[in-house]
Amino acid sequence: MLLNQFLLLAALLFCIGVYGVLVRRNGMLVLMSVELILNSVNINLVAFGALTDDVGGEVFALFTIAVAAAEVGVGLAIVLLMYRNRRSIDLSQADLLKG
């Protein structure tokens, strides 16, 4: 197998994830898109680990999974808080960063 087939698949998934993060207005859907991005990184890590026959790639993929789990936990908590405060998780309404 070519290394590039995995890398390009990961790149494509990454870009789809980016598109999702940018275009979705629902907080939950943005989080899902972030998961796509994280997964594409995992594919890269494992592919490079297989290429160099080094276990480090897998280990770091496992770490990424753990980090992703933490990220989802905190992200959902934030979305819930936002829902509780404004009865909506529409990100286009969350513009308090405006100075």
Binding site: V18, L22, A94, L97
Partner: peptide, 14 residues
């Protein structure tokens, strides 16, 4: 000038 919209900032970032 300042929309405060996170996604627009994210778009700029990417």
């Amino acid at each position: 000038v300042q929309t405060g919209k996170v996604q627009q900032y994210a778009a700029l970032l990417f």
